[in-house]
Every structure is written in structure tokens, then in C-alpha cells.
Amino acid sequence: MSPVQKRIFINKLALIFSTLSAIIALAFLFWILGVLVMKGLSALNWNIFIYEGAPPGYEESGLKHALVGQLILVGMATGVGVPLGILAGTYLSEYGKNSKLANTIRDISDIMMSAPSIVIGAFVYAIVVLPMGHFSAWAGSIALGIIMIPIILRTTDDMLQLVPGTLREAAFALGAPKYKVILNVVYRGAKAGILTGVLLGVARVAGETAPLLFTSFNDNFFTTDLSQAMPSLTVTMFNYATSPYEDWQQLGWAAAFILSMFILGLNILGRLILLSTKKGK
């Protein structure tokens, strides 16, 4: 074999290997996705949305408690995490800029974004659950909120920096004070990007289980009492899946399916928003 033929041969081999690894990876991932869809769809019925949790073996058992609990927990986390994240991102992009302090905050929040979420749960347990003496929805949403802040902060920072400086200057030239420039011009320019960041942030925390295990804990019944333990889809899924009862496991798959669709929906929506604004320009 000439050296060139040898290279061509190795090239083919390498390309086959990497195509093969792509196929292996996708096979596993589609296997998981397939299981999720098949199991989830077959377990899905109206009872799930009508009834709350019940002991194993009961016909009339559902996930209403967990669905509502999940919405409350994620909703409250969003209510805390989004404004704080956006304000902090605003500080970095509009006031801190490239100062040492701003860069330190960026670095720390980058690390926070990948920090183990179960540790956040332990932290919130110590500062909220211990003093209160019991698990609560408050604790769960604080944990989720803490996870959310760095995500929103970084996307806001990035998106605001994309707004051209000339736009700010033009607004300043009209005599607008800085906060008005930010609120009326900069935010408007970065609207789509921030919205996408928020959607992705919500999607990210909605799938978190670990930080809820010992903050909002779980409950098999419907509740809206924020000072008590609150069920969530993720923890319910965990408990049902590890239980020995087949009907509970079924419900666990249903919960997994609903949650995944919600999260994928948010991700796709976020991408579409970003895509449509890119096309607009």
C-alpha cells in the first residue's frame, strides 16, 4: 500500500468509527426516549389529572397533587430566580462591565451553574428546614430559585452585551437617564434572548429532583399549603419508581413523560424564539 492509499484507508476507518459511535450513542438515547414515550403514553389517562395520590392498588389514583405541586414550586422559584437573575445580569453588563468584581461574579456564577444540585438541597435544608422544624414548599422553591439565578444571570449578561453600544448612546443623547435607557432601550433590544434564557432556566429547574428530596420533600396528597411538605413530579417519580407496586411504577412513567414533554416543549419554544428574531434581522 502506498502511503497515500494507507492514509485513505485510515481515513475511512476513522470516519466509520465516528459514524458508528454516533449510531451507538443515538441508539441508546432513542432507546431511553422510546421507553419514556411508550411507557408514558400507555400510562396516561384522564384519572391522572383528576385524582391525587392513593395507596397502591386503588383505581382512583392520579398525579394531580404532584402536577399542581410542581407548578407551584417551579412557579415560585421562577418568581424569585428570574427577577434576581435579570437584575444581577443587568449589573454585570451595564454597570460592572469588565471590572474585576464583575468578572469574579461571572466566574462564580459559572461554577454555580454546574455545582451539584443536591448540595444546594442540603444547604437549604440547613437554613430553612431546620429552623422551621419541617419540610416546606418554601424550602423547595428557594432551592430551585438558587439554582436558577446563575442561569438567568449569565444569559441576561450575554444578551444585554449583544445590544449595540450605539443604541445606548443614541438614547443617552436624547437625555434619558441610565435606568430609562436600560429599561426602555436595552431590555427591549435583548427581549427575545432574555425570554429564551428564562425558558431554558425554567426547563432546567423543572427537571431537578435532588434539591427537592429534603426541602419540599413529598406528599401523596393534594396541598397548596406552602409551609408544609409539597409533592412534585420529580420526587413522586422517584418514590413511585422505587416502590415495588406496579401501578405506582406506571404512574411514575406517566409523570416522567409529562415532565419531559414540558421540558422539551420549553426548550423547543426557546429555540424557536431565538431563531425567529435572528431571521427577523
Binding site: L36, A206, G207, T209, A256, S260, I263
Partner: peptide, 13 residues
């Protein structure tokens, strides 16, 4: 998108 699937589902699978 697969990277966004909650990890608990990988565990269940």
C-alpha cells in the same frame, strides 16, 4: 434536546 431530559429519567431507565 436529549441533554435537557431530566437525569431522574435516565436513572429510571
Amino acid at each position: 434536546l436529549l441533554a435537557a431530559i431530566p437525569s431522574v429519567i435516565y436513572g429510571m431507565w
